[in-house]
Every structure is written in C-alpha cells, then in structure tokens.
Simulated assay, not measured.
Amino acid sequence: MRDQPPLPAVSFQSVTRRYGPVIAVSGVTLDIAKGEFFALLGSSGSGKTTLLMLLAGFDQPTEGRVMMSGTSVSELPPHRRSIGVVFQNYALFPHMTAAQNVAYPLKMRGVGRSEREERVKAALSLVNLTERGASYPSQMSGGQQQRVALARSLVFGPELLLMDEPLGALDRRLRDQMQQELKRIQRELGITVIYVTHDQSEAMAMANRIGIMAGGKLLQVADPETIYTAPSSHFVARFIGECSILRVASLDNGRAFEIAGARQSLPSPAIAPFDIVVRPEKVSVHSVNDARSGEAFSVPATIREVTYLGPGWRVELQLSDGQLLLANIMRGDLLAGELEPGKSVIARWASASVTTLPTEGSS
C-alpha cells in the first residue's frame, strides 16, 4: 500500500467571502504545506487580509471551507484553532512588562505558574530579548516590541503562525533585520507561517512560495523565482519588480517576433498574439558604434530619462516605434559616464530573457 501524502497544514477550498454586494474573496482554492513559509502578496483591498482573518477565525466564509490538517475549522472560534497571530500594531498591554505580555496567552489557557515562567523564558530567548523581560513596552524600541509580540504568539506552541503586515511600522534597516530573524525562527521551530504583505521585496526575500492576490482572486502561486521570471499575467509581471511589457509582431508561427524593425527568435513557440516581458537587469545598452550592432539582436533607442540609484542608474529608453524600455546600468558599464537624455543608443537582450504573455484582451 502506498504511503498517503501528508495533509496540508492549511487548505482553502473554494472560499468566498461577501459583504453585501462586495466580494472580498472570490473562490480561493489553496493548499499550504506543513513547515512552509507562505506569503500572501497584494495591494490594499486585494483580499489577502480577509483570507487571513477567515483562517484565524475572526470571520467566516460565505461559501467554501477552511481546513487545518484535514479538519474543517470554519465553525471553530479563534481560541480553538491553535493559531498565533501577529499584527502590524503590536497590541501589547502597556501596563504589563514584556514577560507578562508573553505570559498572557498561557495564563488564559490555565498553564501553571512555574511552567509559564519556563516557557516565557524560552520564548524571550528565541527572539533575543532575555534581558528585557522586565521592561514595559514604552521602554522598548519598535523592533523590540515586535519581538515581544512575536514571542507572545509563539509561546503556547501554535500549529500555525499568521502575520499581517508585521514589519510595516519599522524603518528599512530594522525591517531587514527582522526579516532575517523571522526566517531564522521559522527554520528553528519548523512552524508553518502565512505572511501577509504588500511589499514585494519582503515576500521575495522570505517566502518559500508566494500567492499573488488582486480583486479577491488568487492570480498565481509559485516560488519567488518562478513568479519573477514566468509571471502568469500582465498584472503579476507589473506587480513583481520593474519590467517592460512590449507589443511585438509574431513571426514564423510564434517562433520569433519583430519589434521596432528588429527580429528575435524565441526559445519555444508562443501563441499569437503575444506581448513580451523584459526585466531591466536583462537589458544591455550600447553605443550606436558598437561593432556588434550588425551581428546581434539590436533595437535602436533614445535615452529618455536617467535616474541615479546608488549602485547604478535606471535608464528609460524610447524605441523607434515609441514604446518605452527600462534598463539598469551598473557602475563600470562602458556607457556609465555617457548617460544623458536624447542620446541615441542600441538596446539588446538575450532571447532566453524574454517571457511571452497573451496580449491583454486577446483571450
């Protein structure tokens, strides 16, 4: 007899949530594996937080079921779901010390005093706050308060940790530090984490898989590299990082395309009509006198705008057919000192760097 595959930690089964005429979540079906760090990524109003609240038990689906480890929890109250939750506003009790805040969930569950003290000590150690147990929230930095909130959500040993924009109130340096801390803690505990954010770089840096949401729908679920290099739609391509989406003419039954008078073959045929997606780091910019201009795929362009970014420059190019193309020029590039609006250049990219998507409205 074959071994049965492990049950997912979380399973949304055709989940819909309506508020009157407004559909906040629309027919979401999604499995999340045990021990996975999963990010729900989307802009405000996309439905990601509503989905999280349905899982936490603070709301109920209009249709469909929410499962945990193969058991429906749609009717269970939040305190019976074995879920820790961390919000952007840390919701710490100001009159309690850090240790008392962390101990609160244990006290509510009737855990004895000696066991509470041991578990609080371990939780504070996990988030590197062993020495701050006697401090009140007003005596702690935002990053330290966030660590206390995290320790409080983990101290009772939940099966699942939900995090809703938990780092949104921190500055960039602290956010970067906390991202690394969260990944470390998740690895140490092996706990399943579902992380809601609107910050694409945060999701890319932390998650094993990402689910992109918009208009209450789940548009694509994949690992970060796949979502970046093979987006499923124009929306996903634009939402994850910068890109250029360009109109092209299909040639040779989708085996090649033409753009601004230049022809390029594709690694695999595409169904016409299609657009191409090119990431700016894949675009190289050359002088019009470059010797290879007649030997390689080359698109004439004019520099339209140059933005200094520190490690390099973001360059907006206009192709001869009027379309705009983004390129990243790094220090040390041959043209690094010759970037100025109005300059005529040649743009190139490898055919393997191109992603094709059906032209919007063509299906």
Results as ranks from 00 to 15, higher is better:
residue 1 M to C: 12
residue 7 L to W: 07
residue 7 L to H: 02
residue 9 A to Y: 10
residue 9 A to I: 08
residue 10 V to G: 04
residue 12 F to L: 14
residue 14 S to M: 04
residue 16 T to W: 10
residue 19 Y to F: 15
residue 23 I to L: 07
residue 26 S to L: 05
residue 28 V to W: 10
residue 34 K to C: 13
residue 36 E to W: 12
residue 37 F to N: 00
residue 40 L to I: 14
residue 42 G to M: 00
residue 45 G to D: 12
residue 49 T to I: 14
residue 51 L to W: 00
residue 54 L to N: 01
residue 55 L to P: 08
residue 56 A to C: 10
residue 56 A to Y: 11
residue 58 F to A: 02
residue 58 F to Y: 02
residue 66 V to H: 09
residue 66 V to M: 09
residue 67 M to W: 15
residue 69 S to C: 13
residue 70 G to N: 07
residue 73 V to P: 01
residue 75 E to S: 15
residue 77 P to M: 06
residue 80 R to A: 14
residue 86 V to S: 15
residue 90 Y to E: 05
residue 92 L to Y: 00
residue 94 P to F: 13
residue 94 P to S: 03
residue 94 P to N: 11
residue 95 H to Q: 14
residue 97 T to C: 10
residue 98 A to K: 01
residue 98 A to W: 13
residue 100 Q to P: 03
residue 102 V to S: 12
residue 102 V to D: 06
residue 105 P to W: 00
residue 105 P to F: 06
residue 111 V to S: 08
residue 112 G to S: 14
residue 115 E to M: 07
residue 119 R to S: 10
residue 122 A to F: 09
residue 122 A to Y: 09
residue 124 L to S: 06
residue 126 L to V: 05
residue 131 E to L: 14
residue 132 R to L: 14
residue 133 G to I: 10
residue 136 Y to K: 06
residue 140 M to S: 07
residue 140 M to Y: 12
residue 141 S to R: 05
residue 141 S to T: 13
residue 141 S to Y: 12
residue 150 L to D: 02
residue 154 L to D: 01
residue 157 G to I: 06
residue 160 L to A: 04
residue 162 L to S: 12
residue 162 L to P: 09
residue 171 D to S: 04
residue 174 L to P: 13
residue 176 D to M: 14
residue 177 Q to K: 08
residue 181 E to I: 12
residue 190 G to N: 05
residue 192 T to C: 08
residue 194 I to S: 04
residue 196 V to M: 01
residue 196 V to S: 10
residue 200 Q to D: 07
residue 201 S to K: 08
residue 203 A to L: 12
residue 203 A to K: 06
residue 204 M to T: 08
residue 205 A to L: 13
residue 206 M to N: 06
residue 206 M to G: 04
residue 207 A to Q: 07
residue 210 I to T: 06
residue 214 A to G: 03
residue 216 G to Y: 03
residue 218 L to S: 05
residue 218 L to F: 14
residue 220 Q to P: 12
residue 221 V to E: 10
residue 225 E to I: 13
residue 225 E to N: 00
residue 232 S to N: 15
residue 232 S to E: 14
residue 232 S to Q: 14
residue 233 S to W: 07
residue 235 F to R: 01
residue 238 R to P: 09
residue 238 R to M: 13
residue 239 F to H: 10
residue 241 G to S: 05
residue 242 E to S: 14
residue 245 I to E: 02
residue 246 L to P: 14
residue 252 D to Y: 07
residue 255 R to K: 15
residue 260 A to S: 08
residue 263 R to C: 03
residue 265 S to C: 00
residue 266 L to R: 00
residue 267 P to D: 11
residue 267 P to A: 03
residue 269 P to N: 07
residue 270 A to P: 09
residue 278 V to W: 00
residue 280 P to A: 10
residue 281 E to G: 02
residue 283 V to C: 03
residue 284 S to N: 09
residue 285 V to C: 03
residue 287 S to Y: 11
residue 292 R to T: 05
residue 296 A to G: 00
residue 305 E to N: 02
residue 310 G to I: 11
residue 314 R to I: 01
residue 314 R to W: 01
residue 315 V to N: 03
residue 316 E to Y: 04
residue 316 E to P: 00
residue 317 L to K: 04
residue 325 L to K: 10
residue 325 L to D: 09
residue 327 A to Y: 11
residue 332 G to T: 02
residue 333 D to S: 13
residue 341 P to Y: 05
residue 344 S to G: 00
residue 344 S to E: 11
residue 346 I to Q: 02
residue 347 A to Y: 01
residue 347 A to N: 06
residue 361 G to I: 12
